[in-house]
Simulated scan of single mutants.
Amino acid sequence: MPSGLSTSWLLWALLSAAFAALTAIFAKVGVANIHSDLATLLRTIIILALVATMVWAGGAWQPPAEIPTRTWIFLTLSGVATGASWLCYFRALKLGDAARVAPVDKLSVVLVAIFGIVFLGERLSALATLGVVLIAAGAALVALG
């Protein structure tokens, strides 16, 4: 297995955070003059084209029949959850300030920690638990401030 920066989960997580931040700013401007659901659809079409291009160019395609049923079930559930999240996120951006909406949306970090513990049997150290509590407190302060 290759090692180094390109296989570092931390690098990819930081890039994800940076792109998520840009998503909030670009979406806030983009949703200003259209319905939030239409904005979500347009963004989804763009994402589909981008990811399809990456799968094709990277040689990552495999026949759908070769994908296990369990994988299909959980990717379908993930897709439904993502769609619902995006619809809610764009509606929130349409109605509120990006600087307040995005931190509240990041309560997903807190929920992932809780769901990971409850459903996946993951464990958090005391320090990680403190971090999750502080994320929740920070989101609450930004939302109420």
Rank of each mutant, 00 (worst) to 15 (best):
S3I: 12
S3T: 14
S3L: 14
G4D: 10
G4T: 04
L5Q: 09
L5G: 02
S6M: 15
T7Q: 14
T7C: 11
T7I: 13
L10H: 08
L10K: 07
W12K: 05
W12E: 09
A13W: 08
A13Y: 08
L14W: 13
L15M: 13
F19M: 15
A21R: 10
A21T: 15
L22K: 03
T23R: 11
I25R: 03
I25Y: 07
F26P: 13
A27M: 11
A27W: 05
A27P: 07
V29E: 14
G30T: 00
V31W: 00
N33V: 05
I34R: 12
D37T: 07
A39P: 04
T40L: 05
R43M: 12
T44P: 04
T44F: 08
I46Y: 09
I47E: 12
I47A: 12
I47P: 08
L48V: 11
A49M: 14
A49S: 08
A49N: 04
L50N: 03
V51W: 07
V51F: 11
V51D: 01
A52T: 06
T53M: 15
T53L: 15
M54C: 11
V55T: 01
V55K: 01
W56N: 03
W56Y: 13
W56R: 10
A57S: 08
A57E: 07
G58Q: 08
A60W: 14
A60S: 13
W61S: 10
Q62A: 09
P63M: 11
P63S: 08
P64D: 07
I67G: 02
R70D: 11
T71R: 05
W72S: 00
W72H: 06
W72M: 01
I73N: 00
I73K: 00
I73C: 00
I73P: 00
T76I: 10
L77T: 01
V80R: 00
A81E: 06
A81Y: 03
A81H: 04
T82V: 15
T82E: 14
A84T: 01
S85D: 14
S85K: 12
C88M: 14
Y89K: 00
F90G: 00
R91E: 04
L95C: 02
G96P: 01
G96I: 00
D97I: 03
A99Q: 06
R100I: 09
V101P: 00
V101L: 01
P103F: 04
D105Q: 14
K106R: 15
K106I: 06
K106L: 15
S108L: 14
V109E: 09
V110P: 03
V110D: 03
V110Y: 02
V112G: 01
A113I: 05
I114E: 05
G116K: 03
G116V: 07
G116H: 04
V118G: 01
F119I: 09
R123N: 14
S125Y: 05
A126K: 10
A126R: 12
T129Y: 08
L130H: 09
G131C: 09
G131W: 06
V132W: 05
V133C: 13
L134V: 11
L134H: 10
L134P: 10
A137C: 12
G138H: 01
A139M: 06
L141F: 13
L141E: 09
L141M: 15
A143E: 11
A143H: 09
L144G: 03
G145A: 01
